[in-house]
Design a binder for these strands. Structure first.
Lengths: 141, 141
DNA sequence: TATTGTTATACTCTATAACTATA
DNA sequence: TATAGTTATAGAGTATAACAATA
């Protein structure tokens, strides 16, 4: 019987768990014609009206070169509008439609989280979330 | 101050933690000219001599269409050889060089794991690993 | 000088469809 | 019929380099 020596490595398990979650989330978001990355940007804009592109990038770990076309698509679909804050940057806000979709997308994300956490014993869930927060909070050093 | 509403979602945190780990691992593996995926396949072959391509794919969650060029590269670099087991499949084995590199790559992976787990309080580490195993073990239903 | 945003480009990983050949 | 492997192709995410304009 073949064995997988990688199943003892948390980094590998992280990758598999993440890949599965993202694939499942992508399916849930098809309804809104949003990829997981697009949805995350939209949700951040919705809860931070006036935020500029570069700050979203820092928050979500997206380099600025990739923010441009991403925000461009959201703007073109009239989910987001850009209001100049000075001569080199724009504050981003959701449109009415964008806000409604951000809300529904966030709900879809939460439902996906529930599906993920289902296989974790209830007593370990809080610790698991805390551990993930511990790990991710030191990533941008 | 801008806030990130996604930091309460384990799936999002999983994605960030995974992305960071994979980027760091990719850097560590540059020395061997292996991507994380290539390294994982090589390590699985090293510890399962004679395993066939489709079984590796099932084990690691790689569809067969992507296994072909991946194994092809390993074979071309003479890290792996293919021995026919019947007329439609090959058993894969590492060469002497492949085995040595698999060993060093696996060590690099373990070192990366140590770096990842460093920010997790010692008392939570075993539970974290167990939780990840709980999650990943039910993915292929 | 540092920051914001942009264009161009490339690589890795992943996925599906369509196919041949074999079990 | 199901399985093993292949080819072709596409999309999503990420990364770097080079640049213009502004703070």
């Amino acid at each position: 019987m073949a064995t997988n020596p990688l199943t003892q490595l948390p980094g590998y398990l992280l990758r598999r768990a993440s890949a599965w979650t993202m694939a499942a989330l992508a399916k849930r978001l098809e309804e809104f014609e949003l990829t997981p990355t697009e949805a995350s940007v939209l949700v951040v804009i919705a809860s931070n009206p006036g935020i500029i592109q570069s700050e979203i990038g820092r928050m979500l770990g997206i380099v600025s070169a990739n923010m441009t076309p991403l925000v461009g698509r959201l703007e073109q679909r009239e989910l987001v509008k850009r209001l100049p804050v000075d001569k080199r940057s724009f504050g981003l806000r959701t449109t009415r439609r964008g806000a409604a979709i951000a809300d529904r997308a966030f709900t879809a994300m939460q439902e996906q989280e529930d599906a993920l956490i289902e296989s974790v014993p209830a007593k370990n869930r809080a610790t698991f979330l805390q551990t993930l927060q511990d790990i991710t909070s030191v990533l941008d050093e």
